[in-house]
Simulated scan of single mutants.
Amino acid sequence: MSRAFLKNESADDPVVIPARAPLPPGATNYVTPRGLALLRTELAGLEAERTHVQAESDEAERSRQLALINGRIANLNQRIGSAKVIDAHDQPHDEIRFGATVSLHSQTGRATIADKKLTIVGVDEADATHGRIAFTAPVARAMLGKRVGETVSFPAMQGVSIMEITEISYDE
């Protein structure tokens, strides 16, 4: 049986450090204050995990786990170090910018498309299931600079969905 189907990893196997959400080349790493707090909380958790792993007895497994944790910490420190915090209260409240929560109403009249509420956040904070979209996402880029009453087109399963911007807020 191929080793690909086994969960057995040996100490000689290379350590693969999971990549963070990508930023486009040359893009500034914008974050909300909440996003920066989440990154710092993640870092504290990894540092606590590293301390716990250092106490383990199996040298080979400890070495692998520490390499993985240290790599993740290095990636996280790099992301935190490059973060540029944007305070939503400093944004123009009549225009969609980074940190805005946008309420959208369907203009197509199809019952399958519900009204949406989306918040534009940093790449590490993005979570589509909670309506948080990265500023690098095509949907976010299409909304940037728009105002209440304007429309935005979104690709949908049944073609293009046209949504009207009904509210812009900066609650963060």
Rank of each mutant, 00 (worst) to 15 (best):
K7C: 13
L68A: 06
S103P: 02
T136E: 15
G35W: 08
D124M: 15
R40D: 04
G109V: 02
I113A: 14
R62A: 01
D13M: 12
R20D: 11
E167P: 01
E47L: 05
L36Y: 09
G131T: 10
A37D: 11
V16M: 09
I120H: 11
G71E: 11
E47P: 01
R147L: 00
V139L: 14
R132M: 15
R50G: 02
E47A: 03
M1H: 08
A134K: 05
V53K: 03
H89P: 00
E167S: 09
I86L: 13
F5L: 14
I168H: 01
A126D: 10
P18T: 08
G109F: 03
M163H: 01
V121S: 05
A67G: 13
N70L: 01
T28L: 09
A4G: 02
D94L: 02
I86H: 05
I86K: 10
P22F: 06
L46I: 02
S169W: 01
G122D: 04
I86R: 11
I168Y: 09
R72W: 01
I120A: 08
E61C: 07
L46D: 02
R141T: 11
L144V: 15
D58Y: 07
N8S: 03
I162R: 13
Q54H: 01
R40Y: 00
Y170S: 03
Q107M: 15
L6K: 06
A140L: 05
T112F: 12
R50Q: 10
G131H: 10
R62Q: 06
E56I: 00
R132Q: 14
N77K: 15
A114F: 09
E47T: 07
T32I: 09
F5W: 12
S2Q: 11
L104E: 11
H52V: 14
I73V: 14
E164M: 08
A19N: 05
V152E: 06
E164Q: 15
K7Y: 15
R132V: 00
R147P: 02
K117F: 06
L68P: 03
R132T: 00
A114R: 14
P138C: 00
Q91S: 11
V15Q: 09
A88E: 11
E172T: 03
R50L: 08
K84V: 14
P22Q: 07
N29H: 13
A114M: 12
E61S: 12
Y30E: 07
A67K: 12
D58L: 11
A55W: 05
L68H: 10
E9Q: 15
K117N: 13
I69P: 03
P22G: 09
A4S: 14
L76D: 05
L76K: 03
L23Y: 04
K116S: 09
G149W: 06
G35L: 10
E150T: 01
T28H: 02
P25K: 15
R110S: 13
I96W: 05
M143T: 04
A114K: 13
